[in-house]
Nucleic acid binder design. Structure first.
Length: 203
DNA sequence: CATGGGATTGACT
DNA sequence: GTCAATCCCATGC
């Protein structure tokens, strides 16, 4: 698997968030296909980088193509891909995966059996993949975490956009992207959800 | 230096 | 539907 190059991430964060749906995330023996993402940009208050460059946010302002892993609610590690040129605070939150490889290991780490419960949430997938905050600022092409293109056997996913989940500020922005029809997303799609990519004919 | 809130989850009513 | 767990760090005194 050839990881996506840094140039893939050095683009508008909304494009990257949409395009990451269908791609693969691998850490060690475990991997999954991305079925849900959210975009965050320093210009809006839901983004950690909104407060500017601090010790906490320095990764977000770093070069594109590195992981921003932070602890949420004191318990969960959340995985992001840093985007846009260096100096622009922006990242894509990986919110859910469809388990692909190392499913037995995922079940061990998660303590649940159902496939749909292994990676259907940003805190769940990091636990399933064994990703911790120690991997913050590591590269996504050649580092311990690797993000690669969509599996050859998969067809191009139909992606839909909706509002982001679990935030209080800038909650109205439709910056959440889901693979339509996936049973592995963290939450069902809201009614206001609208297509971001046209459905392919014949599907 | 003390405080408070958060891009969540799971358990419980 | 509600709520606690529990860590990092930004903010304010």
């Amino acid at each position: 698997m050839t990881p996506l190059p840094a140039a893939f991430y050095r683009r508008p964060v909304l494009e990257v968030a949409r395009d990451l749906v269908g791609c693969t995330v691998t850490h060690g023996e475990a991997s999954g296909v991305i079925v849900e993402t959210e975009a965050y940009h320093h210009s809006e208050p839901a983004c950690h980088a909104y407060v500017g460059l601090t010790a906490r946010t320095s990764t977000l302002f770093g070069p594109p193509g590195i992981a921003y892993v932070y602890r949420s609610y004191g318990i969960h590690a959340l995985l992001n891909a840093v985007c846009e040129p260096e100096g622009v605070g922006a990242a894509v939150l990986i919110r859910a995966l469809e388990p692909l490889e190392g499913i037995g290991l995922m079940r061990e780490r998660r303590g649940v059996e159902r496939l749909e419960e292994l990676c259907s949430g940003p805190g769940k997938l990091t636990q399933a993949l064994g990703i911790g905050v120690d991997l913050n600022a590591t590269g996504l092409a050649g580092g311990p975490i690797a993000i690669g293109p969509r599996p050859a056997a998969d067809s191009e996913p139909v992606v839909a956009a909706g509002t982001r989940i679990g935030i209080t500020r800038a909650a109205e922005l439709p910056w959440r992207f889901c693979a339509v029809g996936s049973r592995h997303v963290s939450r069902p799609w809201p009614p206001e959800l609208r297509p971001a990519l046209p459905a392919r004919s014949g599907e």
